[in-house]
Write a protein that binds this DNA or RNA. Structure first.
Lengths: 143, 143
DNA sequence: TTTCATGCAAATTCTTTGCAAGTTA
DNA sequence: TAACTTGCAAAGAATTTGCATGAAA
């Protein structure tokens, strides 16, 4: 999803292209990571001029409605974290030792979808698979 | 996990058996469901005398440390929800139409564990699998 | 009786909202 | 120009914390 695609999605929904929206999107693209609203605001501030936190929240909420981004709440972190929507976004490996959050790209999510669609009559819209544990490096260090 | 088991876990950790702790545990057992802290407080009030919300939070946090309960945040509900820990607790089916939250008890979580432990060197501690979509009843109604 | 837990109220953190001023189309 | 957005500040919701009183061991 490029910046131009985003502009097209916004326009299609009757929304305007504004500096805050462009800047928030750029911050999320650069990050390639899960950011809290405050982190997004901080990164925007470094690049462009500042964007108010309230506007960041409004922008993220809008993007979520347009399915451009997703919010997730990992572990017991009280703050919501945002990331750009892409097919494997919904599979998170969280290391409880070093704190790394990995987007594990694999076939498991599809397995889950197939299992549910096939046997349970449940129409799957979103799969959010969060696994907590110790990544290979940390598991090796403590073993 | 019976009430007696819980008392044993508390004692083993050097914690006292108190009315609020007993009452919160009972509420969670009765519910067999995901409850917010406020819902726990409300249910306790119906049974026993009231327990302060702050104490409910402190109790839930303690139980979480003792791995007696788990907290999860489903969808974009801002409130944390608590439930008793048991092997299949970590598989949630959330219907976006009727709002039903189902504990789907099945083999998928184990599949995820096996997959990761086997191929990725990731030591799994917790799997949280949340699927959003439409349950059989609601999918049929809108189809 | 000594230490731990509770209740109450105030404080924090994250997020949302009202409204006037600034921007986009 | 007309409608949509932003920034600012205040409001809200969920959760945490300080401290004196009360209860458990």
């Amino acid at each position: 999803m490029t910046g131009q695609d985003v502009e097209a999605v916004l326009r299609a929904g009757g929304h305007r292209i504004t500096r805050p929206r462009t800047a928030v999107w750029a911050a999320l693209v650069d990050a390639d990571d899960h950011l809290t609203a405050e982190e997004v605001a901080a990164r925007v501030e470094q690049q462009d001029a500042g964007v108010n936190l309230a506007s960041v929240y409004r922008t993220l909420t809008l993007f979520e409605e347009l399915e451009l981004v997703r919010q997730s709440r990992l572990g017991d972190d009280p703050a919501g974290r945002w990331e750009i929507t892409h097919p494997d976004d919904d599979f998170h490996l969280v290391c409880t030792v070093c704190g790394a959050v990995d987007h594990h790209v694999g076939s498991l999510v599809q397995t889950v979808r197939d299992h549910l669609e096939g046997g349970h009559g449940f129409a799957v819209d979103e799969v959010d698979l969060t696994v907590r544990g110790r990544c290979a490096a940390c598991a090796g260090a403590t073993a």
